[in-house]
Simulated assay, not measured.
Amino acid sequence: MADAIAKPASVRRERLLRNRSLAKTGMAVSMGALVLTGFLRGRNAGLAHVVAGVALLGLSYWHHTLYTNDPVKRPG
């Protein structure tokens, strides 16, 4: 918590924007892996499909948390 307070607003904003970009990229990659493994056959493909789905869920949650209580937006 003290780390967030000590940093200037511009540094926090850059970090937030970078994390948002990483979350979106991760979601796109995991969605692509989910589609690809959906077409494949075999035990390993099924396991990879489940892993890609769980990754998509985790990245979606991370993406969601980056936009809640957004300090970048100003009310009004």
Rank of each mutant, 00 (worst) to 15 (best):
G58W: 10
A4W: 07
H64G: 06
L66E: 09
A52P: 10
R20V: 03
L34R: 12
H64V: 09
G58K: 09
Y67H: 05
L36N: 12
H64P: 01
S30P: 01
V11Y: 04
R41F: 03
A23Q: 09
R41K: 10
R12M: 09
A2K: 14
T25H: 01
F39Q: 07
T37V: 02
T37Y: 07
R18V: 01
R74Y: 09
S30C: 12
R15H: 06
I5D: 10
T37H: 12
N44A: 10
R43I: 08
G76R: 08
R74G: 00
L36Q: 08
A55L: 13
D3Q: 14
K24S: 10
R43S: 12
A28K: 08
R41Y: 01
G38H: 03
A9K: 11
L59D: 04
G38I: 01
I5R: 11
T68R: 15
G53E: 08
Y67N: 07
M27A: 03
A45K: 05
R12P: 03
G53N: 11
Y61A: 07
L40S: 03
G76F: 13
W62D: 04
Y61S: 06
V11G: 00
W62R: 15
A33G: 01
V51L: 09
V29I: 14
A55F: 02
T37N: 15
T25M: 08
L57Q: 11
A33Y: 06
R18A: 14
A45P: 15
D70S: 13
S30N: 14
R43D: 09
T25E: 04
S60K: 05
A48F: 06
L36R: 08
V35C: 01
S10K: 04
W62L: 11
L57K: 07
L66A: 02
R41G: 00
T25Y: 04
R15C: 02
